[in-house]
């Protein structure tokens, strides 16, 4: 599941920003991720994984880095499985 989440996050994110040269910790907003693109990314992730980002995750920080996005999706996937 972990690998699938990582692969899907990178695939969907890649459609919004150029991932070349970015580390898991790089600031995605600095890399050109717009507010609207982060919304599109969120909706695509929800659709694919069948999860819903709760209120506490609807902030800039959740989508500010690859690591943060993966951590959030992991958390939601675990909650769903539980």
């Amino acid at each position: 599941m972990q690998a699938e989440i990582r692969a899907k996050v990178l695939e969907l994110l890649g459609a919004q920003v150029d991932l070349k040269g970015l580390s898991d910790e790089s600031d995605l907003y600095d890399a050109g991720l717009t507010s609207f693109a982060s919304v599109q990314l969120m909706l695509a992730l929800e659709d694919y994984f069948g999860v819903e980002f709760p209120e506490r995750m609807l902030n800039r920080r959740t989508f500010s880095s690859i690591a943060n996005i993966i951590a959030s999706v992991n958390e939601l996937a675990l909650e769903k499985a539980a």
């Binding site: 819903e52 609807l58 902030n59």
Partner: peptide, 14 residues
């Protein structure tokens, strides 16, 4: 919509 909640909080944070 729901995505708008993220956009709203992002607008506020900035």
């Amino acid at each position: 919509g729901r995505g708008g909640r993220l956009a709203s909080s992002s607008q506020r944070e900035q």
